[in-house]
Nucleic acid binder design. Structure first.
Length: 801
RNA sequence: GCGGGUGUGGCGGAAUUGGCAGACGCGCCAGACUUAGGAUCUGGUGUUUUCUAACGUGCAGGUUCAAGUCCUGUCACCCGCACCA
């Protein structure tokens, strides 16, 4: 009989669906396992071969856990709000809701064709009002606790999407999505105070099992630095506050710099003698896009503010104040004390503007370059700090600042608040009413969801207003508080909103009264294993941790962290080693692969392709090896003998294979797990037959990787019930051990002979045996033995002179 | 510039605490079965070679009986951040 993968795969997919074997049970007495993959954005291009890499990996974990007796939740859904759908809708004149429905149907068909064991009864869709009702509800909780606020500020504006972007969405000064220019624009925006959770988001990384590079990237993004905040008196009367990580160098501060956007410029405008020159510089800086600003970062520019100066509190000296765009309004206080002797940027600026450079830590040569790596230096030219180490000076100056009420110790973060408004149609409406009398008024809970109005035209506007603003019947409403005429907020939420809590909804997806019941959350959370892309480390992963921590703080979820374990898969590249893309013409369509080789081969190949965490190029020839392997698995049926148990000569191999596959799966080493099964099959095949129990074990081990073919053979050979209801095979550590091993005999580290010995042989006997080898005898002739080494089960090394 | 990572056959990639480098697969070579082979099976396949060995994990040193693995230096590539005070 031929291996007809098409018929087999269809057959089992239907059976699994009908029998609902992969639906998570609501029996909370069972041991649970929550496996999660990032739910996809259903684009019009359909599934990418990269998607199944992640989904197959956790499908393997999920299927293995079920065989191990766990109640497994492995859900799937759609992160369906977002720009590409909207842009596609505009271009093709189809409503985004219809586009989304079509795309979801296509994705679902493709996912089903790969035989993933998702619990489809818990499918969710972020664009479903029953879902986004709760996204809006959580937003209102954030608003209620003061963590959502609206603020006029300079934001990243994508010139092509005509929309505001979060800092996390700007990559190298261009839009993450469309690679168009991003400029700064002043707009009133909804913001979420993620910075309030900076410390928790950072510290709690110590309590979760994430791969190290994810932790490192999040730590860097949060960017904690410890220093001091210092007040400088100015001749204008106001104190200029700065943040510095080097308060020890205060005596070396010879000038100050404020960001072009600093509010004091307006405040001091009547005092500033060269205000027109300053304004010209401000205008120039504002005109630059982020891209330009980083491109020309090398050359320092700036203007000295004439008419106002500051006083260095350490030595009472009057120092000038400059404005320059190398100081960012968004970090620290938007102002710095410049210490050109010990900071590279300040040094360059001082050189260009002829400002004094004072050495305050000895050891370098500040006339040539800034001396920054000076932890081991000694303080000089620093009054009461002279003679101290940098470390001591930091402590002492902070003490002194506090005593004199000039400043104090301060921790600063690079992380900034999350820009939460988007001026686009296809997103969750922000459930706020703007009333002239009452200000921002939350839409009452009973009126949620605030549904997106169905409209004809949803193109973005040139003015930067949301398309919703044009729909008067929707915008005009009454204030829930005072009943006066009022307007709805017309901005929508960013794509990341719906995905910030979806893992909670999976626990209880049909709940009409709550986003999820406490009981369900207590049972299922946290997610035991979450796999997803590295590209989401500072976006989705950080945002969702923030939302979850907020919900924890207000007592609505029961764990401080949403994900116990996080891993990340490498990309699947095109055959030429480049990233797959339409324009490069190297895209592999999963439908075609399934058509030609079947889902089982595709799954197996994606796991065999290489190190799971690293990128790997697709190969249209290599995949054939996986198909051949499955053909051989199928053909083994012809060698099946009516014999129970493992044959004595294969018992060790069976146990070792179970051990290897079981362990490798847990460590994401799918490629070597498959290699171990291939080796096993090679060995068994050579014997010309296979016993029932050998076959059963092999099918169980292979099932998570290739679920269809294994179920089919299981049924054809009457191994009893459905394979997915059986138990994961056990191994006996004792039986994994080999009795006889080949060991290597070396002379001075060079291999001279090999011999078979009993695994438990002692050192003296093995060395005696080794010396009997003719080759070794010859080598030892006329030589003096200096040292004899025996590594059990590996080698003997005889050192001679 | 800072942070993280990677360099192993023709290719994808394997190698517990240092212990036979190249598992497994692709490709290639030879043979078998065949009208046929882009099917299947069997064997071979790091390089050089005087057929005995020598060399071999980006490069140069070092530690060690023994180094892909540890140490020092160095080069290349990839990813993330980037004037973060």
């Amino acid at each position: 009989m031929k291996y007809d993968f098409k018929a087999i795969e269809k057959k089992w997919q239907d059976i699994w669906e009908k029998t609902k074997v992969f639906e998570a049970k609501d029996d909370y007495s069972l041991p649970k396992y929550y496996a999660l993959v990032e739910f996809p954005y259903p684009s019009s291009q359909g599934l990418h071969v990269g998607h199944p890499r992640s989904y197959t990996a956790l499908d393997i974990i999920s299927r293995k856990r079920r065989l191990e007796g766990y109640n497994v939740l492995y859900p799937m859904g759609w992160d369906a709000f977002g720009l590409p759908t909207e842009n596609y809708a505009i271009k093709n004149r189809i409503h985004p809701e219809i586009v989304t429905k079509q795309n979801i149907a296509n994705f679902k068909r493709q996912l089903k064709s790969l035989g993933f064991s998702f619990d489809w009864s818990r499918e969710i869709d972020t664009t479903d009002p029953e879902y986004y009702k709760w996204t809006q509800w959580i937003f209102l909780k954030l608003f209620e606790k003061g963590l959502a606020y609206k603020k006029e500020m300079a934001v990243n504006w994508c010139t092509s999407c005509k929309c505001v972007l979060a800092n996390e969405e700007v990559v190298n000064g261009v839009c993450e999505r469309c690679s168009s220019e991003v400029v700064r624009k002043n707009k009133s925006q909804w913001m979420l105070k993620i910075t309030e959770y900076a410390e928790k988001l950072l510290n709690d990384l110590d309590n979760v099992d994430y791969i190290e590079r994810v932790k490192t990237q999040q730590r860097n993004w949060i960017g904690r630095s410890v220093g001091a905040q210092i007040n400088f008196k100015t001749t204008a009367g106001d104190d200029l506050v700065v943040f510095t990580t080097r308060p020890d160098t205060l005596f070396g501060a010879t000038y100050m710099v404020i960001a072009p956007e600093h509010p004091y410029i307006e405040k001091w405008s009547s005092l500033i003698e060269n205000i027109s020159e300053i304004r010209e510089y401000q205008a120039q800086a504002a005109r630059k896009s982020d891209f330009e600003r980083t491109e020309i970062a090398k050359d320092k520019t700036g203007v000295c503010i004439k008419g106002v100066s500051a006083i260095n509190p350490a030595n009472g000296k009057e120092i000038p104040i400059f404005i320059s765009d190398y100081v960012l309004i968004s970090y620290g206080t938007g102002a710095i004390m410049a210490v050109p002797g010990h900071d590279t940027r300040d040094w360059e600026f001082a050189k260009k503007f002829g400002l004094p450079i004072i050495e305050v830590v000895s050891g370098g040569d500040v006339s040539k370059e800034a001396y920054t790596d000076c932890e081991n230096g000694i303080m000089v030219n620093s009054g009461f700090l002279n003679g101290l180490t940098v470390e001591e000076a930091k402590a002492k100056i902070i003490e002194w600042l506090a005593e004199n009420n000039i400043g104090q110790k301060k921790v600063n973060y690079k992380l900034r608040d999350w820009v939460f408004s988007r001026q686009r149609y296809w997103g969750e409406p922000i459930p706020i009413v703007i009333c002239d009398k009452c200000g921002f008024v939350p839409v009452p809970e009973s009126e949620l969801p605030v549904k997106l109005p169905m409209v004809e035209s949803y193109e973005p506007t040139e003015t930067g207003e949301s398309p919703l603003a044009k729909i008067e019947s929707w915008v005009n409403t009454t204030c829930p508080k005072c009943g006066c005429p009022a307007k709805r907020e017309t901005d929508t939420m960013p794509q990341w909103a719906g995905s910030s809590w979806y893992f909670l909804r999976f626990c209880d997806p049909h709940n009409k009264d709550e986003f999820a019941s406490k009981k369900a959350l207590e049972y299922w959370m946290p997610v035991d294993w979450y796999n997803g892309g590295m590209e989401h480390t500072t976006l989705h992963l950080l945002y969702s941790r923030f939302w979850h921590k907020f919900l924890y703080a207000i007592g609505l979820v029961t764990t401080p962290e949403p994900y116990a374990k996080r891993t990340s898969h490498g990309m699947i590249l095109g055959e030429n080693g480049e990233k797959m893309s339409k324009s490069r013409g190297n895209v592999v369509n999963p439908d075609e692969v399934v058509e030609e080789y079947g889902a089982d081969t595709m799954r197996l190949y994606e796991m065999f392709i290489g190190d799971f965490e690293k990128a790997a190029p697709w190969s249209t020839t290599s995949i054939k090896g996986c198909k051949r392997f499955l053909d051989r698995i199928w053909a083994l049926q012809e060698n099946l003998v009516d014999e129970a148990g493992y044959r004595a000569e294969f018992e060790g191999a069976v146990h070792r294979t179970i051990k290897k596959v079981s362990e490798d799966i847990e460590e994401l080493k799918f490629n070597t797990a498959i290699a171990a099964m291939m080796e096993f099959v090679n060995e068994i095949s050579a014997s010309g037959k296979i016993t029932k129990d050998e076959y059963r074990t092999l099918l169980l081990l292979l099932n998570p990787f290739a679920p269809h073919i294994t179920e089919e053979i299981w049924q054809l050979q009457n191994f009893g019930g459905m394979l997915n209801q059986a138990s994961w095979p056990a191994y006996d550590e004792e039986k994994c051990k080999v009795q006889e091993v080949e060991i290597v005999v070396q002379i001075n580290g060079k291999i001279k002979a090999k011999m078979m010995v009993d695994v438990n042989i002692d050192k003296d006997s093995v060395i005696k045996l080794a010396k009997q080898e003719p080759k070794i005898q010859a080598e030892l002739d006329n030589k003096q033995v200096v040292k004899e080494i025996y590594v059990p089960g590996k080698l003997v090394n005889i050192v001679v002179r």
